[in-house]
């Protein structure tokens, strides 16, 4: 057996293992998903369960308001997560990634706030990223601190009204 054969066996073995690990992670076979995902720093183990079993059927809304130097609260302002759909978006859709990123952070935040203590979710990447993002938005007046809120609505033809999912405390700007 020469070096080329060994290289071939290693590559074929790696591809086989990668496929097996991918399948394990989809169906959590032998409860090994967490074990593999913990080591997956480069997103090599895909998540193929698109829109399933429970598809996202609501829109999230990110709102924020500021307190000025006199501790007066301003009005809530919405940062639109969803963008308007255009035909050109089928080819060129640069807003998609930012929209997906905000959607992911908001969803993870909601899940964490339902499961964890405030001291735990407030130190999560998603929470800090959201505060960081809200703080970066352009403001007209000099503000001292900011607060954000996540709301949920039920689409273009809603069957019920929007509801509040989460409201943060004020954070210094």
């Amino acid at each position: 057996m020469n070096l080329s054969d060994i290289f071939t066996y290693i590559i074929v073995g790696c591809l086989g293992f990668w496929l097996l690990a991918s399948a394990i992670c989809q169906f959590n076979i032998l409860r090994l998903e967490k074990f593999f995902r913990r080591m997956d720093y480069f997103s090599l183990l895909p998540r193929w369960s698109f829109f399933a079993p429970n598809p996202g059927v609501t829109d999230y809304h990110l709102l924020y308001r500021d307190k000025d130097q006199e501790d007066e609260c301003g009005r809530w302002t919405e940062y639109a997560i969803a963008s308007k759909r255009t035909l050109i978006g089928a080819v060129w859709n640069p807003k998609k990634r930012a929209k997906k990123a905000l959607s992911d952070t908001v969803q993870t935040m909601i899940r964490s706030s339902n499961k964890l203590e405030p001291s735990q979710y407030k130190t999560s990447i998603c929470y800090i990223a959201l505060v960081n993002f809200i703080a970066s938005l352009p403001r007209q007046s000099e503000s001292k601190s900011t607060q954000f809120m996540i709301m949920e609505s039920y689409g273009h033809y809603p069957t019920k009204g929007p509801k509040m999912l989460f409201r943060s405390e004020f954070h210094k700007l």
């Binding site: 829109f51 598809p55 996202g56 059927v57 609501t58 829109d59 999230y60 997560i81 969803a82 759909r85 929209k99 959607s103 039920y154 689409g155 273009h156 033809y157």
Partner: peptide, 16 residues
């Protein structure tokens, strides 16, 4: 319908 009804991944004309 529910997915197409959202602003995030849907389209108002198609949902309509």
């Amino acid at each position: 319908f529910l997915i197409f009804n959202t602003s995030t991944y849907g389209s108002k004309p198609i949902a309509g």
